[in-house]
Computed example of a mutant assay.
Amino acid sequence: MIQLLAPDGTLREDGRAPLDVTPALCRDLLRDMVLARRFDEEALALQRQGELGLWLMSLGQEAAQVGSVRALAPGDYVFPSYREHAAARCRGVGAAELLAQWRGVMHGGWDPARYRFHIYSLVLGTQALHAAGYAVGVRLDGADEIVLAYFGDGASSQGDVSEALNWAAVAEAPIVFFCQNNQWAISTGTSRQMAAPLHRRAEGFGLEAHLVDGNDVLAVHAITARAADSVRRGGRPVFIEATTYRMAGHSTSDDPRRYRSDDEVESWRERDPIARLERLVRARDWAGPEYFDELKAESDRVAEQTRAACLALPDPATDDIFRFTHTEETELLREQREWLEVYHSSFTAH
């Protein structure tokens, strides 16, 4: 497994993933992870207070997401699943846009073309096929971009993902598949999901494959940058398995205490990706008290802005049910919408 930063904050070298580790890079990556976690925590609080219908936390997976997405070019296109909040924030997606779907006011909260970041896919593994198809289009167009697709270990058990890996390999699509192996597919552990490591399975399809410490943001950044460069130059599609851990439940509807032990969670807490990078930054004196004070203040502002953005989201118009069921409103839907408008106006009149 590729690792550049040990849990105790010690740096090491690995020729498979060389990286120029600078103070500025570490400060930037640490900031991204800290702010993403604060946003995630505030979203959880909003759900518990009844302001969101559901939330899926990215707690513990910040390094896998931030390290990978920051290794891409601005024009590269990303296909997430439904837990990539840290990656979305790095792409500029705002709090209101991220929360809208979970508040139930729209089906997708942002313009994918603007951020080069697709809307969330809640159907398990389906985004892998979308990404592979898009990547084939990129190759046929000769466009100067690559594609990165996120999914989890649970999604890798879906047929869609196997089809996507095979299709991408055969078509020589410019794509990087990034699997966040967070050890649990809801309540099913990896030992009950697969008999061989995921990256080995990818090699069987003809992809270049790597195993990386997903809680090491530097290693993730380095191997994703290498993969992106290789694919961009016409190399084989790449599969990256990032070993990480889902610290929270699968969703706010899940109680992880029913299927995993406190000792297991605590063992992974000691490998926390944020604490790991902070140890390095502090040990090397790459950031002073001013940096950490400002980061704390900024994270507080993120929490305040997240709450305000959520509460300010407008309720959807009932008309939208009819207008956006199809690309063009059908005659029957138009008649139903107009009937409902008359019905609503009768209450207003009296």
Rank of each mutant, 00 (worst) to 15 (best):
M1S: 14
L5C: 07
G9M: 05
T10A: 14
L11P: 00
E13R: 14
R16H: 02
P18R: 07
T22W: 06
T22H: 08
L30T: 10
M33H: 11
R38G: 08
F39N: 05
E42K: 14
E42H: 01
A43G: 10
A43H: 04
G50H: 09
E51V: 13
W55Y: 15
L56Y: 12
A63H: 06
A64L: 09
A71N: 04
D76W: 00
F79G: 00
Y82R: 08
H85N: 03
A87T: 09
A96H: 06
L99M: 12
W102E: 13
R103A: 15
V105T: 15
V105H: 03
V105Y: 09
W110H: 13
D111Y: 04
P112H: 01
R116S: 00
A131N: 00
G133P: 04
Y134E: 02
V138I: 10
E145L: 01
V147G: 02
V147I: 05
Y150E: 04
G152S: 01
A155W: 04
S156V: 07
S157Q: 15
G159Y: 04
L165F: 12
A168T: 01
V170L: 14
P174W: 01
Q183P: 03
A185I: 02
R192D: 13
R200K: 14
R201H: 08
L207P: 10
L207S: 04
A209C: 03
G214Q: 08
N215H: 10
V217M: 05
A222W: 12
A222R: 04
I223Q: 11
R226D: 10
A228M: 03
G234Q: 05
I240Y: 05
E241I: 08
H250W: 02
P256S: 01
R257Q: 13
R258H: 08
E266A: 15
S267D: 11
P273F: 10
I274Y: 11
A275I: 01
R276K: 07
L277V: 07
L277I: 14
E278M: 06
E278L: 06
D293V: 00
L295A: 04
A297S: 12
D300Q: 15
R301L: 13
A303R: 14
A309I: 04
A312W: 03
F322V: 09
E331P: 06
L332T: 15
L333H: 11
R337G: 05
E338W: 03
E341C: 01
Y343D: 15
F347A: 14
T348R: 15
H350T: 12
